[in-house]
Design a protein around this nucleic acid. Structure first.
Lengths: 367, 367
DNA sequence: TGAAAGGACCGTAACGGTTCAGAACCAATT
DNA sequence: AATTGGTTCTGAACCGTTACGGTCCTTTCA
């Protein structure tokens, strides 16, 4: 009980300076610019700091004064933890983290509960810039980010023209995939896609909802499909498109089931992500459908488990996307116009796609 | 070119107050305590803010005054991006993120390059607390965190007695796994472990280095093995233990190769992580060794790919560990003593372990 | 010996907010 | 008429630091 009975206020740079009989500037310099003071004095400052339990300059106060936080913020659609569940998101984050560590910058994951309209977390984030990854274009969090006077990079979002952007040509890539299926002879297809807007709509999607989709990525992938199949003479408005709010394999499976229940004659299940496609594969197996003999299944992304399953898909460089976003943000030059980066994708023809059984004429046996 | 020719300084709360002819307090209240001023005035404040392009109270200045940053920091051993490569780390992060989003707190990933001694990133992090995940006990970044006057939770680290801790009984769990192997008849075994210290040492490990390991988790897992096998009459000092700095499947494979080259007669390869074990499996296959008929392979962690491979391992609740760490940190009560949480593990007997071919007497045929 | 150079340290003024104890005002109660 | 209570708004202190532009003293060199 020999310790001080009164609550001692924590030491600050000022109190340390007072104790030493030097100016605050000098103490500050002891930490930040060793060359600005004599080694002896510096040692004395540091020793006294240790004795007084001064932990060094307060990072927040420093940030206020220097006007840099040493961190970039990341805004995602989903609950924070989603970032660690979705393989594509993980890849993106790894790339972003690579860029951050190169720059010695921290990475702040901003909690943005999509259920609530509460954007306080965005306002509260002490960051030098934002990366926005795949949020709906009408998300209030996105609006809040854009109001903040810091550089921003959007990824997998529409080009806003005002901030940097990185992405892929989702529409073109999906168009190519569709062309591949069409060349195999597929005309009667079904689609399972990820959520198209902030409201939950687990079921069939109207053409209108497809057009009005608030998720840039999904809208463009669907649009690429619609274009290709329309060109091939397919009436896109008759194609069953099923939406799933949650993004996991179970959704892929139930989405596939819903498509197959509606039209058992579809020869191909096109999924807008590999995760959904992997789920569709399980549903096909459950129904005793052999892939690709009885049915073709395709994905999008090029994640590892899809690769192992031999999935026909579009591979996109998720890690590079994250890294590019980080780089764009970290050398944000006020002078430059908003930049837009499109990364290349690659069509991967796996073993889950083949010509439909019986060929194109099969559709004459439809219901 | 009608826009202002001069650079306008960004609006602040003070300039907004001046423009409106009200006090700064009132503007602050307009944002933070709407009930403290009349609705009309509040509207006027917010409208003027929009007109002047005032983005709302600066988060850093607010943090300085309120003494809360609204974020917790995470310190990891590795380069930042490692967090997104290692399955166990991903699970931990998911759990931590869950705890954070429950509390509406941000999660700041602090870049801590293990190569450099530069701990500035720790000093610069504006956070309300730290979670430290599996860093060597002599890491300067850890020391820097402990000097910061904020609550801290260490995970997979020794109990420091001064800060909260969460972990598992690595030693006991590995002891149980070893007992299982011993009961199957294994006496001649080899070990592949993760890095034991900050220096790279890809090769055999002396008993001394095992004891002095700076990674709590690895030290305890090895110690559990040593205890069990010693009790079974095995001279642990003769057991080949190979260390690998990088944690990936390739390391597991090359580590296994090194053990098998040294002693082709080992009947079991014990790996201190599933990732290493998966690599060991590939090396076994490469050599034409059938698992478990020709050789037993075991892991530790209970990650998904291991499960799919039918790996015998110890499953630990990585997600729960992260969540527990977050909870501990977020309701850090000054009054409570440092808490220590041990989570339960489960021994998983998969299909990669079996009794050694020829039984215990085989060792008589050794070199 | 005087001028110039350089090292070491300091004072002041921000940085952009929040908070608390009132002041001013008005209506309702005693 | 004085008191009470409530709402609305204000003034000043404070958060802990760094940027900026000095001053002062000691060397160095012509």
């Amino acid at each position: 009980m020999a310790r001080s009975m009164h609550v001692r206020r924590p030491a600050t740079l000022a109190s340390l300076a007072a104790e030493l009989g030097v100016s605050r500037t000098t103490v500050s310099n002891a930490y930040n610019r060793p060359d600005q003071l004599s080694p002896e004095l510096r040692r004395r400052v540091l020793d006294t700091a240790r004795r007084l339990g001064y932990p060094g300059p307060d990072p927040v106060a420093r940030s206020l004064r220097t006007r840099k936080a040493g961190a970039v913020g990341l805004l995602l659609t989903e609950n924070l933890s989603y970032a660690f569940r979705d393989p594509a998101a993980i890849g993106f984050l790894e790339g972003l983290a690579l860029a951050c560590e190169d720059a010695g910058t921290g990475l702040l994951l901003v909690p943005a509960n999509p259920e609530r309209e509460d954007v306080a977390s965005v306002h509260r984030a002490g960051v030098d810039g934002f990366v926005v990854y795949s949020v709906p274009d009408d998300d209030p969090h996105l609006a809040a980010v854009l109001e903040r006077p810091v550089p921003t990079v959007v990824c997998d979002q529409p080009d806003l023209g005002t901030v940097d952007r990185v992405g892929i040509d989702d529409r073109g890539a999906m168009y190519e995939l569709a062309k591949h299926l069409i060349s195999l002879g597929h005309r009667r297809v079904g689609v399972v896609c990820m959520r198209l807007a902030r409201d939950r709509n687990d079921g069939f999607v109207t053409a209108e909802r497809q057009h009005a989709a608030h998720f840039h990525v999904q809208r463009n992938r669907l649009s690429g499909l619609a274009e290709a199949f329309s060109e091939a003479g397919v009436d896109w408005s008759q194609v069953p498109v099923v939406e799933r709010f949650d993004h996991n394999m179970a959704s892929g499976a139930s989405g596939a089931a819903q498509v197959l229940d509606r039209d058992p004659q579809v020869t191909a299940l096109i999924c807008t992500s590999d995760v959904l496609a992997l789920g569709a594969l399980t549903e096909a197996a459950r129904r005793g459908l052999r892939v690709p003999h009885d049915i073709t299944v395709t994905g999008f992304d090029g994640i590892r488990p899809g690769e192992e399953a031999g999935l026909t898909t579009v591979r996109q460089p998720v890690l590079e996307k994250g890294r590019a976003a980080g780089k764009l943000l970290l050398d944000a030059n006020e002078r430059t116009r908003p930049r837009s980066v499109n990364l290349a994708t690659e069509l991967i023809i796996g073993k889950t796609s083949a010509a439909p059984r019986g060929g194109a004429e099969e559709r004459w046996f439809g219901p």
